[in-house]
Simulated scan of single mutants.
Amino acid sequence: MSGIINDNHTKSSAGDPIYAGLKSDILSGRLKSGLPLRQDDIARDHGVSKIPVREALRRLEVEGLVVFEKNKGARVRHFSEVEILQLIDIRLALECRALELAVDNMIASDLCAMRTLLDEYARTTDITRSSAINAQFHNMLYEPCDNPQLLGLIDDLQQKLGQHLRLLVTEASRLERTMHEHNEILSACEAGDAAAAVLHLRHHIETTKKEVAAFMRRGK
């Protein structure tokens, strides 16, 4: 025998599909921030007891998507304006480092795919599609960094922001400005200039943060 098989990670529970469904609904924005999550209702909808529902909600609490309030139960996590801006600051640090590592590993097909994506971005008028393309472009920038743990942290942060917050960022940012800065970042990558690419990315995210802050102050 070469070792003992540990199957803890392969076991499933009755809470798994509940967890997956709630998580998908939260990240997509179908369950709005601050919405109460009533265990009795969820259990009835899934035909289970409250035990797997509670298990699913606790897992989502660990991931920062759900909060439990005393005498009120669980609700979808609401991020304050300050917390949103703090998450963008964390995004700045993680993504700049990922891009710094990624540039030297980029190959022609990576650069071509990103250029094609930006061409589509320029033609898109739907805000939901623009948001999705924006997220895809940034993910393609960082993927060659060859650091799965760093990419995992970036993905976790994107999940915390959620689809509704990503749409807020897209709505708050001016399309012309975003297109120009994306092109600056990609041009630096095409030139193999990691320092310039990171400089452009830092400016891009910092400007986005300012626009989001102004957007929220106006209450739009």
Rank of each mutant, 00 (worst) to 15 (best):
L151A: 13
Q163D: 08
R166Y: 03
E190G: 02
Q163W: 12
A194G: 09
D156C: 04
A194Q: 10
L165M: 09
T208F: 00
V212K: 02
K209D: 02
A194M: 08
L199N: 10
I185R: 14
I185F: 13
E184C: 12
D156A: 15
R202W: 00
A195R: 14
T208R: 07
T178H: 02
E176K: 10
L175W: 01
H203Q: 01
H182T: 06
E181G: 01
H200W: 07
A172L: 11
T170F: 00
L157P: 01
L201N: 03
T178Q: 07
L151K: 14
R166T: 12
I154M: 12
R177G: 05
A191T: 08
I185D: 14
C189K: 08
V198M: 10
L151H: 10
H164M: 02
A196P: 09
L161C: 04
Q159V: 03
H180C: 04
V212D: 02
K160E: 10
E176L: 04
L167S: 04
H200R: 07
R177A: 06
H204M: 00
L186K: 07
H203S: 02
L199K: 14
R202Y: 00
R177S: 08
I185N: 12
L168N: 04
A191G: 04
G192D: 06
R174Y: 10
K209P: 02
E181F: 02
A194C: 09
H204S: 00
D156Q: 09
